[in-house]
Design a protein around this nucleic acid. Structure first.
Lengths: 215, 215, 215, 215
DNA sequence: CATGAATGAGTCTTCATTCAT
DNA sequence: GATGAATGAAGACTCATTCAT
């Protein structure tokens, strides 16, 4: 589908320099933040490099000094966001090793929802980015890591053993992403977030219980 | 974000003419099919009117005779797909009135999954369309209709009464869409579809049971 | 400036058939009227053959049976309008042969203004047509004929003989077209038309008097 | 007929940037000049952005960097031309305050004709521009300003007081624009310009005299 | 003859990217 | 390093005109 190999894409999307000077770092950050702002404020459809440079208060030329192309800008934001979520999930999964399934379900669900809801506007805007060229790669990678983390956690549960670990882990994940996405795409309010959190806990909990055999 | 009113958008996206000659009908169909094909084969990023016309074996002019603009092409495909799914869900919900919750969960889940998996490539490609300008409107509408249908069904369950009908219906829906999307975005195979179907049934069933009070 | 010779243009702009059947004649007329209506209602910018055919209640194909191209449609309307004005002017000039200058000025001015004000909307819309390809030819021709008619009339005045007949005739004409155009382009109302008429009489009268020697 | 508000049009037609580098300024100028050249050499009908960019020796992209759209190019040229004429008229009117009517008529007429005849080809080409979308706005504005200037001048005449100042001013203006347009649209030669100038003086002078009462 | 579907050249406009200053 | 002017390929859309039915 794409003539570039996976690694070629990866290379192309990496920020250009590992800046050593403080100034460079500040500029990179400004561009990074501007990318988010433009994305959130204007949407993917009106997202372009000129606007990002403008918001960042730098010239387009500078922008291209730090990011090799438009996609790399978006990739950076998407990746960092996903990485954050992944790390949160990995951390909580690690912490939950050996705990009962219900505790796990609760802890992971809450951690995931909270990670996604830290900046709901950004989370929402990134759905469009994920759909763009190359975005799927990052999403896939994140999914894989969370899948692994969850699998490992579930397998270590103290009170029960899930049947078909692969499928259950995958479903567990989707049982969180589905409702979160739905919320972000409809209407985000304090009250709804709270309710969502609780219901996702119930959803995952009930599911895990239903698909596991007590040890 | 968009200065056009809702109805203005709707009008702008409606096909242009109701063809009278047989030839037109064939052309319209060819264009519609070409839209799907380009979408599936090339992806949203490389989707453009020239390509669609080419594949349909007609001139761009003809394309614009039937669809007022590029978005209307995509809207037509997205809308028809969503409408089909919505109708399937509405039908099964209606048929399940007064049945026990577990039967409902199973019937609705299976119907939904099957509707989405009729043409997995199309379902998958349309996620990108939904993210584009205006796509969200159709998704929102579909969601609303399915939400209503599900709410009505759940409220009529013979054996139990859900707490917080609104949230539960919404979660029910997301508990189906999340895993289905996940499947479509990773890897579709007969075996996985079958497993998915069963697990979604378990997921929704367990959730409904957990959030309802026996009558 | 244009690669077609004058006569080639003329040929190309002539309506295609000299219709003998009543039906043809009616169709031609419908198209002609539709041309005017589209022009007046939508303006030159939105004027196109499809719209004309629609308004005329015929197919584009039929339109092209009667008029060889878009320009010929506009040319027909422009020409007929100008021809009408020219004829009015020629007639009044002929009638005024041998009369005193002041009477002439009054009679010609009033006739001209009235001819232009019969359908002010059409007169106004045609200014844009006159500016289009080929329109200038018709305007030029009309000007020439009116110029001649006026020259002849002025030369025959009973009470005075104009100095520099060429220039005076030309100025006489412009002294009418200028104010009329100004009125049409600003605001047409009964009251303003009446005032305009009187002032044009004064303008032309005073001018002719000032540029002539009593016999 | 146009859904944009006046100010929206105005904004849309304003040049895009106030160039900071010297290079930009040269480019902007080249584009401006190319606009005039294309207009004069090819006429409105064959006027397009590609042609302008080509003649200016820049890319289309550059053109759009400085002018937001095609209309703004034409508007810029039309506006500058009209502004020049308006300023000339305003200046001479101011200078003529309190003078006798005949002097005024002569001074204003000559100033106006000379302003229009500085670049006859441009003046002529702009008639077509004035007829296009939005051109009328600029013409209207120019007319209004000249009307005001002339009214003020006439009202201050030392020797006479015009009846119906509004109409007389308006007629005065048209008595200049009509003949000038006629000349530009037929044949411009040194000799004719000279004659025209004199005859316009006579025309306006005679008219003002005829419509005023001695003080 | 009438119809209206089909054509495709021609235009406007955007925006990622480069490179001279 | 930074700037922002310049580029031009690419894409959406229109409309005069033709021609099979």
């Amino acid at each position: 589908m794409n003539s570039l190999s996976m690694s070629a894409i990866a290379a192309e999307l990496k920020p250009r320099k590992s800046p050593v000077q403080a100034r460079s770092l500040a500029t990179m950050d400004a561009i990074y933040e501007a990318t988010i702002q433009v994305l959130v404020a204007e949407g993917m459809a009106r997202f372009n490099t000129t606007r990002v440079a403008e918001r960042a208060g730098v010239s387009v030329g500078s922008l291209y000094q730090y990011y090799p192309n438009k996609r790399s800008l978006l990739a950076a934001v998407l990746e960092r966001h996903l990485l954050h979520v992944v790390e949160v999930v990995e951390k909580v999964c690690a912490a939950q090793r050996g705990m009962p399934l219900a505790d796990m379900a609760r802890a992971v669900s809450i951690a995931f929802v909270d990670a996604k809801m830290e900046r709901p506007d950004v989370s929402k805007a990134l759905y469009a980015v994920a759909e763009e060229h190359g975005g799927a790669v990052f999403v896939g990678r994140a999914r894989t890591r969370m899948h692994k983390a969850i699998s490992a956690a579930l397998a270590s549960a103290s009170d029960a053993r899930p049947n078909d670990l692969e499928t259950v882990s995958s479903m567990f994940l989707s049982a969180m992403t589905g409702p979160v996405r739905n919320l972000l795409e409809t209407d985000v309010s304090r009250a709804r977030i709270a309710r969502l959190r609780e219901h996702i806990v119930v959803l995952t909990c009930a599911y895990l219980t239903a698909t596991s055999l007590a040890r």
